[in-house]
């Protein structure tokens, strides 16, 4: 890790101005930045710490929804009574992520911005080729060990999976990301790699996330985050699903369903086809199981990760049935 200058932003606009320069990086919790600097993936000339800026760590829950200040810590959101009550999937996505130490450090905006855990991306010394790090250099993961790589949203240039959990839950419930410049629906925020894997989000230089707003919904209220992994704890997902369910007054017909996937796609992945197939249907195991297969429509395996294509529909099925009281 080369040395860098460290400064504290005096205001959001100060931070915004300074991070428009090349080589200047914003720092919040620092868990990603310090890690990637040690890996040699990130080499800032200067980091600008924004954690001392006031007023950006508020968590507010009202009838209309939740507003999460960008600098709220993961642990604080996970343990927030209002979030746990109204957005269980969001709280669970956080408490099942990383460890409590990391959740105490990492902010929720920083969490959205975390980079892939692709081993090839994370080791520039061993694998110079990485289209995410160095556009046009190639993809070392293709043909390598790909057990944790994406099966959805991949391109010939990149198969790295988005590792986070929170963004998956936020995607399911149509969160909006507020920045210093604008409001971005989360569904548009993350960019699939396509031919430009180095472009990961819509954020422009100097643009800073200030808050995340999640509208209240019956589906969010009745939601869950199901995370499947080899180890019981402290591991990224092999596959995960954030699911919200609202039934009609008859108690059996699906009025609203939200399904988003983690650990299997290059970006947080909304399984809209599953939602469409089930809304209006009577909730029963066979129907759900059949519709959940649509979650992996278009999925492409790369050797070791084929199991994810089998696993995803099972995760989706279980999550829906659990919410429906059928599992």
């Amino acid at each position: 890790m080369k040395n860098f200058e460290f400064s504290r932003a005096t205001s959001l606009s100060d931070a915004s101005l300074r991070t428009q320069e090349a080589g200047v990086l914003l720092m919040a919790g620092g868990t990603s930045l310090v890690d990637l600097a040690k890996c040699g993936v990130t080499e800032p000339d200067m980091v600008v710490d924004i954690t001392r800026l006031g007023g950006l760590d508020q968590i507010e829950v009202s009838e209309r929804g939740a507003t999460l200040g960008a600098l709220s810590r993961m642990a604080a959101v996970a343990d927030h009574a209002g979030i746990k009550a109204e957005f269980p999937a969001i709280a669970q996505s956080l408490s099942l992520a990383a460890s409590q130490q990391l959740r105490n450090m990492a902010t929720i905006a920083g969490n959205l911005m975390q980079r892939t855990r692709c081993a090839y991306f994370r080791d520039p010394g061993a694998f110079p080729a990485c289209n995410k790090r160095q556009p046009g250099s190639g993809c070392s993961a293709l043909g390598g060990v790909t057990r944790n790589h994406a099966v959805l949203g991949t391109s010939r240039e990149c198969i790295a999976s988005y590792p986070g959990d929170l963004a998956v839950a936020l995607l399911a419930f149509d969160a909006t990301i507020e920045t210093t410049d604008r409001r971005i629906p989360i569904g548009e925020f993350f960019l699939e790699p396509g031919e430009t894997p180095h472009l990961e989000t819509l954020l422009r230089p100097g643009e800073i996330i200030t808050a995340i707003v999640v509208p209240a919904s019956a589906a969010a209220h009745r939601s869950t985050y199901l995370k499947v992994r080899d180890r019981q704890s402290y591991e990224f997902a092999a596959a995960s699903a954030a699911v919200g369910l609202q039934l009609e007054d008859d108690g059996r017909t699906i009025r609203d369903l939200r399904v988003a996937l983690g650990g299997v796609a290059t970006v947080p992945w909304r399984a809209s086809r599953v939602e469409q197939a089930l809304i209006g249907q009577v909730l029963d195991e066979g129907t759900v199981r059949q519709a959940s297969l649509l979650a992996v429509e278009g999925a492409v395996a790369h050797g070791d990760n084929h199991y994810k294509i089998d696993l995803v529909p099972r995760v989706v099925t279980r999550a829906i049935l659990t919410l429906g009281g059928l599992a």
Partner: peptide, 11 residues
């Protein structure tokens, strides 16, 4: 230690 997995307390 994030990818070579050893048991955690929860395991």
């Amino acid at each position: 230690l994030g990818d070579y997995l050893v048991p955690t307390n929860a395991d």
